[in-house]
């Protein structure tokens, strides 16, 4: 079980969170009309074996979306930040 540091609530069990997606993927601008851009956003992932920035939602806590920096091979967690405070 992962123990995830929530910037608001502190270190909490994985079960309080729900996993979102790769946090390096950016929602296109709403006026973006190129289907390729939207396709890549919705479907395509780097899926790295190693360090990964990813969204988690503290659903059973403060309900903040956070960006967790975690290694997908070792599950080591390097840190986290509120999604709203991470540079776009």
């Amino acid at each position: 079980m992962l123990r995830i540091p929530c910037p608001v609530c502190g270190l909490r069990d994985e079960t309080e969170f729900s996993y979102g997606a790769d946090a390096t993927v950016r929602l296109p601008d709403m006026n973006e009309a190129d289907p390729k851009v939207w396709h890549d956003y919705v479907f395509i992932r780097d899926n790295p074996r190693g360090p990964h920035k990813e969204y988690w939602h503290h659903v059973s806590g403060c309900r903040q979306w956070i960006v967790v920096h975690r290694d997908t091979l070792t599950h080591e967690i390097f840190g986290s930040a509120l999604a709203r405070e991470v540079a776009a």
């Binding site: 395509i44 790295p48 074996r49």
Partner: peptide
């Protein structure tokens, strides 16, 4: 599970998560 990893070396990004 290692598909993305080896595809990346060929310059491919795939609709896959491991």
């Amino acid at each position: 599970g290692h598909t993305s990893h080896l595809a990346a070396k060929a310059g491919l990004r795939l609709p896959i998560e491991t």
